[in-house]
C-alpha cells in the first residue's frame, strides 16, 4: 500500500520520500548537535563555578531529558509536516499529465497496434524497393528499345534506299519492268525463229 510516487520522481528527479528523509535526518542531526553544544557549554560553565555541587552526569541527564522531550515533539511535528508536503507540495495530482508524456494521450498505442504499424512500415519499405527495381527494369527496357529501334530503322532505311536506286535508274516497278523485259525477249526469240524459218 505504499505509494512509491514514481511519477513525482520523474518530475522532481528524486522521490518525495527521499527528500523528506533527507530533511528529517538533517533536522534531527541539527537538533542532536545543538543539544550537544548546549550540554558542553553548560559543563564548561560549571567548571568555571567554584564549589559547584552539580555533577556533569546530572547535566547529562538533564540534556537527555530535554532532548527526549524535543525528539518526541520533533517526531510528531515532522510527521504532520511530511504529510502536508507529500500531499500538497511534492505530489502530482491524478488528473495531471507531465508535458513529456503528452504523447501518451495523443498516441495511445498498444503493443499490438505498434507492432501492426511496424509491420505496415516494413511492407511499405518492401513495396518501395520492388517499385524501385521495377523502375530500373522499365528504364533498362527503354534503353534496349532504343537500340532495337535504331537497328530496325536502319533496315527500313536500307529498303528505302533500294527503292531510291530503282527510281534513279528509271525502274519504278520491278514487276512490270521484268514482265516487259520477259515479253520482249520472248518476242525477240519468236522473231529469230521467224527469220531462221524464212531464210531456210
Amino acid at each position: 500500500s505504499v505509494n512509491p510516487m514514481v511519477y513525482e520522481a520523474q518530475f522532481f528527479g528524486f522521490t518525495p520520500q527521499t527528500c523528506m528523509l533527507r530533511v528529517y535526518i538533517a533536522f534531527q542531526d541539527y537538533l542532536f548537535e545543538t543539544m550537544q553544544v548546549v550540554d558542553s557549554v553548560i559543563l564548561k560553565k560549571l567548571d568555571a563555578i567554584p564549589n559547584c555541587k552539580i555533577s556533569p552526569s546530572e547535566i547529562r541527564k538533564s540534556t537527555e531529558k530535554f532532548l527526549l522531550f524535543m525528539k518526541e515533539h520533533f517526531e510528531k511535528l515532522f510527521g504532520k509536516m511530511e504529510e502536508v508536503l507529500l500531499q500538497l507540495v511534492l505530489n502530482i495530482p491524478k488528473n495531471v499529465l507531465l508535458p513529456e508524456d503528452k504523447v501518451q494521450e495523443q498516441y495511445p498505442y498498444s503493443k499490438e497496434q505498434l507492432q501492426a504499424l511496424q509491420e505496415e512500415i516494413q511492407q511499405l519499405q518492401q513495396q518501395y524497393r520492388a517499385e524501385a527495381a521495377a523502375g530500373q527494369a522499365l528504364r533498362a527496357e527503354l534503353e534496349e528499345q532504343k537500340a532495337v529501334q535504331a537497328e530496325l530503322e536502319k533496315i527500313l532505311q536500307w529498303f528505302d534506299g533500294l527503292d531510291n536506286i530503282c527510281r534513279e535508274h528509271g525502274i519504278s516497278n520491278f514487276k512490270e519492268s521484268f514482265a516487259f523485259l520477259t515479253q520482249n525477249s520472248k518476242k525477240l526469240q519468236e522473231l529469230l525463229k521467224d527469220v531462221e524459218v524464212k531464210s531456210k
Partner: peptide, 22 residues
C-alpha cells in the same frame, strides 16, 4: 485521471515511438 507509466517500458515506449513511426 491522466495517463501514468505502466512500469513496463516496452508498453510505454510504444506511444513515444508512435509519432515517429507515423
Amino acid at each position: 485521471p491522466a495517463w501514468r507509466p505502466s512500469g513496463v517500458p516496452e508498453e510505454d515506449a510504444g506511444s513515444a515511438l508512435a509519432p515517429y513511426l507515423l
